[in-house]
Nucleic acid binder design. Structure first.
Length: 425
RNA sequence: GGAGGGGUGGCCGAGUGGCUUAAGGCGCUGGUUUGCUAAACCAGUGUACUGGGAAACCGGUACCGAGGGUUCGAAUCCCUCCCCCUCCGCCA
């Protein structure tokens, strides 16, 4: 959510920010709502002030045995007017809030212009795609060929976009997650968290998934929502809090399943496990001050890159352009891993700086030691470190052999109990 | 799921309709006193919105778990919900 005061003082800059995302100007509409809202508040507060004063006088008059009926009549009429104003305040206030909740974050000045992913800018590449002297297979064919990946029975049990992963492939995925967590906790200073997978709607509103992306989410009959990413659970660890500046930055990591309905993705990535309703991800989240957030953003990208480098998977870093940065975020770098099965780089991590957008929605603030008045909103950042299912895909396709077996990356050997080659049994 | 007990400021804790501008204490900040430290004493010490002001600041309103209600007036009475604690039941 954006600062209403900022919109009020900088309507032209606000509309220009929307224009970068190819969105229509909204300052006029919002400013009118805001002015009307504040007008009602001012009137209401002056009535309340008079009512409080009169009520106090009634108490004093009555305690001396006097007649307070004139004052009581006055308060009665004030109350009538207040009731109408309270109703209006609630309606206008809620409507203004609803509107503000659907306004996207202001993009960082460093974000390149452009209206869709074709305008994204390649920042750097690492590693070179391996050349094969035999026809390469994609991960779905490899997995099914090994007898360790089953979509057919998953369709019987759960429907489309689910899979069974078995034996050494299941273990390989677990090894990847372990390796990522170990690296981030012991070398990168992130604290491991095992967070809730079911959250309240308020949490999703805080991190920005609601109300806009309601169709992408699953909700239980009990009213809990399944997290589409542990970013939701992790970022909300500071919701409603006033933190000490000294405890920032807070760096958190979690390995969790993620659940997405993938509404609107019909026909996209239907083969394999690239896009499923349920997948696993190691997430990185940083809570920090505005002064350090740009550096923390670079840091998260680097932490994610380390994983790909140690797995010896070729990748590139892409700066998302204005039209491709998500609703909640001010700036995003994607990591795209080389997939021989598709002869293409595919997203495996998205590292974003949300500035204070989520913090405002969550009311997450900090204060410096000894600072006596006022608070500041924290900055929130998140990145995949990495999407575990897609990393499994990348390992399978990049480490495949001519006979359809898969070598285990060196760095995973300690996690694989001596298995260095996965082959059909 | 059942029974009982709770939720008050940064923390502890008083508060059964107006004497509360939430007592008192702790903590914190500043000051006085003072070889130094400590102690003592004095003062200050929440968040948000809103009006005025260039600002420093000065007013107002709301907030005692959340939301409704009763009342001229609610931390206090009523209703609904949430969370915590103890015990019981069930359960990985």
């Amino acid at each position: 959510m954006l600062d209403m005061k900022w919109i009020r003082d900088n309507p032209a800059a606000f509309d220009a920010a929307l224009a970068r995302r190819a969105a229509a100007p909204r300052s006029k509409e919002i400013l009118e709502l805001d002015a009307s809202h504040r007008g009602v508040i001012t009137e209401l507060q002056s009535l309340q002030s008079r009512r409080n004063e009169a009520s106090k006088q009634i108490g004093q008059v009555k305690s001396k045995g006097g007649d307070a009926s004139a004052l009581m009549t006055e308060v009665a009429t004030i109350k009538d007017r207040m009731a109408a104003l309270e109703a209006k305040e609630q309606i206008v206030g809620q409507y203004l809030l609803d509107v503000l909740m659907t306004v996207p974050n202001v993009l960082d000045a460093a974000v390149p212009e452009g209206k869709d992913e074709t305008a994204n800018v390649e920042v750097r590449t690492w590693g070179a795609p391996r050349s094969f002297n035999y026809p390469v297979k994609d991960h779905a064919d490899l997995g099914q060929g090994l007898g360790l990946l089953d979509f057919d029975q998953a369709a019987v049990v759960s429907g489309a976009r689910f899979s069974y992963l078995k034996g050494a492939l299941a273990r390989l995925e677990r090894a990847l997650a372990q390796f990522m967590l170990d690296t981030h906790t012991t070398e990168h200073g992130f604290t491991e968290v095992n967070p809730p997978l079911l959250v309240k709607a308020e949490a999703l509103q805080g991190s920005g998934q609601l109300p806009k992306f309601v169709d992408d989410l699953y909700v239980t009959t009990a009213g809990h929502w399944l997290i589409p990413t542990s970013e939701v659970s992790l970022v909300n660890m500071v919701a409603q809090k006033i933190l000490n500046k000294a405890e920032l930055p807070i760096r958190l990591t979690a390995f969790t399943p993620c659940f997405r309905s993938e509404a609107g993705a019909a026909g996209k990535d239907t083969k394999g496990i690239i896009r499923q309703h349920q997948f696993e991800k190691v997430e990185l989240v940083t809570i920090c001050t505005p002064e350090t957030s740009a550096a923390e953003h670079e840091r998260i990208v680097k932490c994610a890159e380390v994983i790909l480098q140690r797995l010896e998977l070729p990748y590139r870093v892409v700066a998302l352009c204005a039209g491709d940065v998500g609703f909640t975020m001010a700036r995003t770098f994607d990591l795209e891993v080389w997939l021989p099965g598709q002869s293409a780089y595919r997203e495996i991590s998205s590292c974003s700086n949300g500035h204070e957008f989520q913090a405002r929605r969550m009311n997450a603030r900090y204060r410096a030691e000894g600072e006596t008045k006022g608070t500041h909103f924290v900055h929130t950042l998140n990145g995949s470190g990495l999407a575990v299912g897609r990393t499994l895909v990348a390992v399978m396709e990049n480490y495949q052999e001519a006979d359809g077996s898969i070598r285990v990356p060196k760095v995973l050997l300690p996690y694989m109990g001596g298995v260095d080659l996965i082959r059909r049994v």
